[in-house]
Simulated scan of single mutants.
Amino acid sequence: MKDEGHIIIFQTFYDPVLAHIVRGRLEDNGIPCFISDENTLAANPFYNQAIGGIKLNIFEHDLEKCRAILAEDTDLANEL
């Protein structure tokens, strides 16, 4: 298996729906990514501030491409 590099947190969200919209947008453009901490917050929403929200994780080498993809979508960029 090829080493893809380091995984970083691209963005954090307090709204799980918005996190999934952004994840879908990136995946539609060929960017592998995943969401973490969503289940923890679903089980206990009071931990939201303590753990820093829901995290969208990407490979570090995709960072600039992710920024460019989201910058193109002005409606989505206004939500972030």
Rank of each mutant, 00 (worst) to 15 (best):
L18W: 07
I69N: 03
F13E: 02
C33P: 02
D75T: 10
G30I: 07
N48T: 13
I35V: 14
N48I: 09
F46H: 14
K65Y: 05
C66P: 02
D37I: 10
H61Q: 14
A19L: 03
I31F: 01
N57R: 14
N39H: 05
M1D: 11
I21D: 04
F59Y: 14
L41I: 15
I21Y: 01
F34M: 03
H61E: 13
K2G: 08
A71G: 05
H61F: 07
I21Q: 04
D15N: 14
L41G: 03
I51G: 00
E79T: 11
T40C: 00
C66T: 02
K55L: 00
N44L: 10
C33V: 04
F59D: 01
A71N: 15
I21H: 02
I35F: 06
K55P: 01
A50Y: 15
E72D: 08
L70V: 11
P16R: 01
I58R: 04
A42G: 00
E64Q: 09
Y47M: 10
M1Q: 10
V22E: 11
L63C: 08
L70K: 10
A19V: 04
D75L: 12
A43D: 07
Y47P: 00
N44E: 12
L26F: 12
L18F: 10
M1L: 12
P16T: 02
A71W: 11
H61C: 11
